[in-house]
Design a protein around this nucleic acid. Structure first.
Length: 207
DNA sequence: CAAGAGATCATCT
DNA sequence: GATGATCTCTTGA
């Protein structure tokens, strides 16, 4: 159970995106922890990647992506959902890994509380059905983990939000690579196979 | 179940 | 003024 050090994130982004599968995202809230196993990621690689916000150059929003590795890049999308990324590679080279889905492990009661829409519904569904729907998408997991703009630029070597290695190794044959979701505007970059997920895992956002 | 639309606003042109 | 690394609900077969 070791917290990943900064040098882990200072590696080629595609490699980090694959290595993050099977690692554990930990969010500390007061004395409680929310933990999920990472099962789906996407890589956004460098200044030329037209799918990446950083391809339009350094702006107040994308500044974090140009910073040192091991920090959170959190932004609001479509006016109502947050996306959580981890900045990779050296300072001044803009790259990040989007965490698209995790499998709920610990603090599941807190995840329920944080998820707005599910909270609205009375418990007419059984536990497993709802668990499945807690964190299987980038916006959903940000709700469940209470990740918002305040955590933008948070240091992942600190004690609010980090990633742990708990000794699980995902073998290459259990990693599926596909094109990234929702980036059809990215011309020659839209079909790059830079989305990765654990084969057969039921918490992956889409097949 | 698939397909479509509405929500909603920070960011950049 | 347009757009988007999404989610949820509704509609219709």
């Amino acid at each position: 159970m070791t917290k990943l050090p900064r040098k882990f994130y200072n590696q080629p982004t595609l490699k980090v995106a694959k290595l993050l599968l099977g690692k554990f995202l930990v969010r500390k809230i007061g004395k409680r922890k929310v933990v999920g196993k990472i099962v789906e990621t996407e890589a956004y690689v460098g200044p030329k990647d037209l799918a990446s916000h950083a391809s339009r150059g350094k702006t107040p929003r994308t500044e974090v992506m140009f910073g040192p590795p091991g920090h959170a890049y959190v932004y609001l999308i479509y006016g109502l959902n947050y996306c959580f990324n981890i900045v990779t590679e050296r300072k001044d080279y803009p790259a990040a890994v989007l965490i698209r889905a995790v499998e709920p492990i610990e603090g599941i009661d807190l995840m329920y509380q944080h998820r707005k829409s599910i909270k609205r519904k009375k418990s007419i569904f059984n536990f497993s059905f709802l668990t499945f729907n807690l964190t299987n998408g980038p916006g959903k997991l940000c709700q469940a983990f209470k990740i918002d703009k305040k955590l933008n630029n948070a240091d992942l070597t600190g004690n609010i939000l980090w990633v742990e290695d708990r000794g699980i190794k995902i073998s290459p044959k259990d990693i599926v690579a596909t094109k990234r979701i929702g980036v059809d505007y990215a011309k020659e970059y839209k079909d790059k196979p830079w989305r990765f997920y654990i084969k057969g895992n039921k918490f992956v956002s889409k097949k």
